[in-house]
């Protein structure tokens, strides 16, 4: 068995312990709803994720999915337990492990092009930086909007732009925290398709995708991780071997869907 890309070793989070204070200006990470109340949010989570995998993390809202993702990103530290990436312990955010937020993480005071260029600061020549930013925007089907400000775009376009910024950082790992949950259904379907295309294109990028949309997870991932209700533990892990294009109505996938609903304690026949 090959060495795993991400190794999560008995990570436990109790509220009040996972606040990072080191970075200048970063006084406090935003406490997510699941961290409130002085209780155990994540309990003894151990996982291994392989290079190039697309792994979805499913669970009830408030079960600590985002908290886990933020720990992997290095934004917060677990109360106990450790995370290793490529054999190195995670001690803080890194430019090759890029986090994609749910919404509104583009800098609203910069144009779309400037936002993407923020991830290209190592390119010294301004014109080259600009053309590179345009390339990344084209990758997510956004063209001709680089001089617009984020407020001028729709939610879906903003999310595309954020993905473009993340890709511009040439990530080794993409950590996506419910990236499409603020969008309308049709836009989500479009972005789902594009996400798959990106995953196929960027074979070497490992993607962790937090969602509560089971269909989204079924259609995109190589593996599903289902977390239980808080204190969240790994309830079950399911591999999906069905090749793309995947038809959600097929027998395999509908069985799997029913199985996941069962694990989440949801009755589908009511």
């Amino acid at each position: 068995m090959s060495k795993s890309k991400i190794k999560i070793d008995r990570v436990t989070v109790e509220y009040g312990n996972n606040v990072k204070r080191s970075w200048f200006g970063l006084r406090k990470t935003q406490p997510s709803p699941c961290e409130v109340g002085g209780r155990v949010v994540l309990k003894d989570i151990s996982l291994e994720i392989q290079h190039g995998e697309f792994v979805s993390i499913l669970g009830h809202s408030g079960c600590g999915k985002s908290t886990l993702l933020k720990i992997i990103a290095g934004f917060s530290t677990p109360s106990t337990g450790k995370v290793w990436i490529d054999g190195e312990e995670v001690v803080g955010p890194r430019p090759d492990h890029v986090f994609v937020f749910q919404e509104g993480a583009l800098f609203p005071w910069l144009t779309i092009g400037e936002n993407v260029a923020m991830a290209l600061r190592s390119v010294k020549d301004a014109r080259e930086r600009q053309s590179k930013a345009q390339e990344y925007l084209a990758l997510v089907a956004l063209e001709g909007v680089e001089n617009y400000y984020p407020y001028m775009l729709s939610g879906g376009m903003k999310q595309r732009a954020e993905i473009a910024r993340a890709l511009a950082a040439q990530p080794d790992i993409l950590l996506m925290d419910e990236p499409f949950s603020g969008l309308d259904h049709l836009t989500r379907l479009h972005l789902r398709e594009e996400m798959l295309y990106l995953h196929i294109m960027l074979k070497d990028t490992t993607i962790l995708f937090v969602t509560h949309d089971i269909d989204e997870a079924l259609q995109l991932s190589n593996r599903l991780i289902i977390l239980s209700e808080p204190p969240a533990q790994v309830k079950c892990v399911r591999s999906i071997k069905v090749p793309h294009p995947r038809n959600l109505a097929s027998e395999d996938l509908s069985d799997l869907r029913a199985n996941i609903y069962h694990h989440l304690g949801v009755h589908t026949a009511i």
Partner: peptide, 21 residues
């Protein structure tokens, strides 16, 4: 919003870059 600082930390802004940007 603290999220902007998380983005900045993720993209490895220096102290001056976070002040300026």
């Amino acid at each position: 919003h603290p999220m902007y600082f998380q983005v900045a930390a993720n993209l490895q802004f220096s102290v001056w870059e976070s002040v300026y940007y």
